[in-house]
Design a protein around this nucleic acid. Structure first.
Lengths: 346, 346
DNA sequence: CTCAATCATGGAAACGTTTCCAAGAACAAC
DNA sequence: GTTGTTCTTGGAAACGTTTCCATGATTGAG
């Protein structure tokens, strides 16, 4: 954090441009900001000098004076998760096109890093905030966020007073569960993310709903929210398989988790679809190319990222009048492959 | 870009703190910046007010005055590529720990977006720049970069005057090729990224070297640099397989490309390892869990990201004296699985 | 022809920090 | 007791923009 003594800048300032063009500083500013009431001659004269000098206005000075930094914050728990990186990628493209730069804050699920990022957002005068799925029980974070008073958009996350863009995880969970129930399964394990994260909450809700509609009880022991990382699913699956009433079907996340579920099946000598049915949430190369190929629930990640970015930009531009905070839902799609069958007769 | 009229800030400024504590503004600044020669009483009095008011210094003003933004730029072609997102993730962690924020610029392989990002780096007074692998024939970008005069670190990329952190792609390419040659293969296809990107260049060099050491000719028709995206590998593989002298082994990138190579094999009725041998570069869930499992070349992505970030931070802190620009190499590791065999006797 | 409105520009005051400079107090050395 | 140092603090000038206000030149309505 050691600050060094400022050296005289080598870069031309707006004053240099004004001097060389023989006009006032405010005229240069007006030309650069495309304000009305400027004569063509003045415009041409100034732009010539701007080009010749290669003048680029200083963002810090602009932000200081005008209170806008052309910067959007992006808070995500784990950018190395392909689900997130694909959404971030699409969002960044949209923001870049509009002249904004994306500031990335990876929280790694730690609330202190979430609140720290909020502080950075405020100090840096970011113009908007993209909030990706995260633990909604973090109270300190929620209250820090509330003090922010900044255009926000939630992605697979509820944000008080802000719109959100979400895949229909509840509907997806429902559809997959209903499909498995329809095949005759009665003990369906659900391996999903941490319970306090919206997609998981919704997924479990869909799962329950499917059971209720079929008149079945839900055995909560079969619902296994996984802490982050890939190691845990393995032992959970082993435990379920070796328990007194093992599941006949497993629904699991496609990213990270699917691989360790497959490992667990293999090390217990269990094969799909004959011994157990398998569905994964979030399509992956692995799901597509495993043998047999694995049925998967999928949705358009890029589209979510794009819509979120566009929605946020609208709010940034319109200021406070944008009060439509209804969530935007994107459908999921169930891709049937060859990983499911009727359960074995007992 | 429409700027609104600045409203009187609700947030306390350093002046408010000074007034409430009954001290001068410069004293507050000194306390906040941990400068020496401050009496404990003054320190306590100021910090009390800082805490009570929840004062957070404004980054724009700091950047304007001190010419440091505590911001690191990160230029990457495609953040949705798991190879990159994992490195970025590790780098971000390191930077965050040091109090820096990462500004992401995804170029999507377009030179205009590369130069635009350089401009953003300058305008925003970023303190350093992480440059991920990209097309090294982009002259406009190279010259724009040269004018920047900022601490940089290349990742799987050469940057004039700056150190770089790289996996030993040449060694990896050599090792894999030698292994396949050792099995008896004489026609080994190499599907890699665009030729002008360092890892591909190096990989091809290793591939050639292995051929030369074995006294074999290199058939350049077998070396297929792929343009970005996954579609192309499919047709390239089909073309090779259906050609007059099809390869008996394929080396392909693990990310994106492996899946379409497998598709191409399947649709030509060709099975590995019996009909053809297969190795992928960059380990993935798919490589691990395909049947048979696919031998893969791997390396430590997180470590690369961490080292790059640390190296950059050193350079940012030390200013210009850090003149060691030797590349830092990380080893690759070849994981033998069951996707290779001796070529069929003709 | 007058008076007001609009246009086109310039001057200067912000924005919120850091840092230079000055100055008094305390302290040490002679 | 004088004379330098070193501490400790305050005042004020930057940093590079945007934007308010002022001013003279046009224009238009009556």
């Amino acid at each position: 954090m050691a600050r060094t003594q400022p050296t005289p800048s080598l870069r031309p300032t707006i004053r240099d441009v004004a001097a060389q063009a023989g006009v006032s500083v405010s005229s240069v500013s007006r030309v650069l900001n495309r304000e009305p009431h400027i004569s063509p001659e003045l415009h041409a004269r100034i732009m010539r000098v701007v080009d010749r000098l290669g003048f680029e206005p200083d963002s810090a000075a602009q932000a200081l004076r005008s209170r806008a930094s052309n910067t959007i914050g992006c808070m995500v728990s784990d950018i190395s998760n392909p689900l997130y990186s694909e959404m971030v990628n699409a969002a960044e493209e949209e923001l870049q096109r509009a002249g904004y730069v994306l500031m990335l804050g990876a929280t790694r699920h730690a609330e202190e890093r979430e609140t720290a990022f909020i502080s950075a957002v405020r100090r840096r005068r970011m113009d908007g905030l993209l909030l990706f799925a995260g633990d909604n029980t973090h109270k300190d974070f929620t209250s820090a966020l509330a003090t922010l008073d900044l255009p926000c958009v939630g992605i697979d996350r509820e944000v008080p007073g802000a719109p959100s863009v979400r895949a229909d995880h509840r509907g997806g969970g429902f559809e997959v569960t209903r499909y498995l129930i329809g095949l005759g399964h009665r003990r369906i394990a659900l391996l999903t993310g941490p319970a306090a994260v919206l997609p998981s909450t919704e997924r479990v809700a869909g799962y329950r709903q499917a059971h209720i509609e079929a008149g079945l009880e839900v055995d909560l022991d079969l619902v296994r929210p996984q802490v982050h990382g890939s190691g845990i699913a393995f032992s959970d699956v082993c435990q379920l398989l070796q328990g007194p009433a093992p599941p006949t079907a497993i629904i699991t996340l496609g990213t990270h988790m699917l691989a360790s579920v497959m490992d667990a099946l293999a090390s217990n000598g269990i094969r799909y679809p004959s011994d157990i049915s398998l569905v994964c949430i979030g399509d992956t190369d692995l799901a597509r190319h495993a043998t047999p190929a694995i049925s998967a629930l999928t949705w358009d990640l890029s589209e979510i990222g794009r819509i979120a970015a566009k929605t946020l930009l609208e709010r940034v531009r319109d200021g406070d009048q944008a009060q439509d905070t209804r969530p935007i839902y994107l459908p999921t799609r169930f891709i049937l492959r060859h990983s499911c069958a009727e359960p074995r007769a007992k």
